[in-house]
Nucleic acid binder design. Structure first.
Lengths: 234, 234
DNA sequence: CGTGTGATTGACGCCTGTCAACGTCTGTGG
DNA sequence: CCACAGACGTTGACAGGCGTCAATCACACG
């Protein structure tokens, strides 16, 4: 019978991954470790829905989660991916708003839930943590600003190339240069902000141009330099 | 001879406008009031350039400032406007990065400069201020996420209508329903993320449809309901 | 009066979204 | 074991939104 050993320990987590919790005192960390509620969730499961109040946030011990907004005609716009060590859902707690995104498991995940009151208490009592968290939000804001500029000014072709490179930096390649995140064509389209068919056509163009190789959802990155050029990154 | 009376007092400012400083202690406020360096800057003046390190941030006592990124071929993408009571340039300080935007005066402004070290000290020492600031950044992030979804999914026509409504909410109308911010057609295009010519054509369409009226840069909002419909806001 | 910046209009064509049809694969139930 | 449904991927046809280019106008300013 599996039990306690399944629940990840915060102490181990902050050693293995860089997390926001690295500046906590031993006591604070122990408190979180005691209070948190962990659960294993399978691909496809929705962790929270947008326009809801969430009374805590999640820390990802394993797996991948996509955060997205639902726009016109229910078309989803993917805003961000979270992987192990990342936290999700904290924005709406801190801004005291409803969540502006939904979160869905893309790759089976172990999620640890920490209550809003704990988060607020940490921010109030540990100024190093507050600064660290502030830094995180500000970085995300900077990235969002970049993305606004890209979507507003670049062509779909440029954006798709750029997204492939961003995914590469975020999720690495395996020894065969295969991107370590599995997305449907539709999900790719929902990051880039285009139609599924456009993604399909452009991906096969990239393939003919020997920049990538395709095998179902596996995307092999062959020529980073060429992709960078297509993406129009200086 | 004008002198001290020209320098705005922080105490007055927080009474007149809602600012981030409202949770400071009397001592902290006095400290800022003493330390700050204020300057009057005319339309067109660039306050800071992107990709630079800024060693402080600005609080706007009067006027309007646009924050923008420079994208492909130097085309600017306007990210945000700041008006009296707003602060600009704090993101890069908190995230310890280079500034990701430039800031330019659009309407003659009185700007107060506060050093980065003061900001960091306040965050460390005053947890209410830290929370307030966190809330501000998180709201901005939420708005950025919304805008990403809009640009990715809506047509230029929808976005222009939406931008007009956003500007209305931000800068109000005078008694004749004229928008209280003066922008060139190009600037409007750089918010929406489109070509100047497209903005011109769509604006005159909106005018024919009796939703707005135009007189040079003055935009009169005639039919908010119709604009909302065009903007596809639910 | 010349110069420059911004606004406007027209012509043109490509990028990209939409629609439709079809192929592929997986899992399920009879 | 096979039929079938459903999700996902692919391809083609087509049209129209919107960007680009160029010419002209309006207005302010030195």
């Amino acid at each position: 019978m599996k039990n306690v050993s399944d629940i990840p320990s915060c102490e181990e987590c902050i050693i293995k991954f860089p997390t926001i919790f690295k500046h906590l005192t031993a006591d604070e960390l122990a408190e979180i470790n005691y209070e948190k509620k962990c659960s294993f969730q399978k691909r496809g499961n929705v962790i929270f829905h947008e326009n809801n109040r969430i009374n805590g946030f999640y820390c990802l011990n394993k797996g991948i989660v996509k955060q997205y907004k639902t726009g016109i005609d229910g078309k989803e716009q993917i805003i961000r991916f979270a992987k192990r060590g990342d936290i999700i859902g904290y924005r709406s707690i801190l801004s005291n708003e409803l969540s502006c995104t939904s979160a869905k498991v893309i790759e089976d995940a172990m999620l640890c839930f920490i209550s809003a009151s704990t988060l607020i208490a940490l921010v109030k009592n540990n100024s190093n943590f507050a600064l660290e968290l502030m830094q995180l939000v500000c970085k995300e804001l900077g990235e969002a600003n970049n993305y606004i500029t890209d979507i507003a000014q670049k062509s779909v072709r440029e954006r798709l190339a750029e997204v492939l490179l961003l995914l590469k930096n975020n999720f690495e390649l395996d020894k065969d240069h295969v991107l370590q995140i599995s997305l449907t064509r539709e999900e790719l389209a929902n990051i880039v902000g285009t139609a599924t068919e456009s993604v399909i056509r452009l991906l096969s163009e990239f393939k003919s141009d020997k920049m990538i190789d395709l095998d179902g959802r596996k995307i092999k990155i062959l020529d980073i330099h060429a992709l960078t050029k297509v993406a129009n990154i200086y």
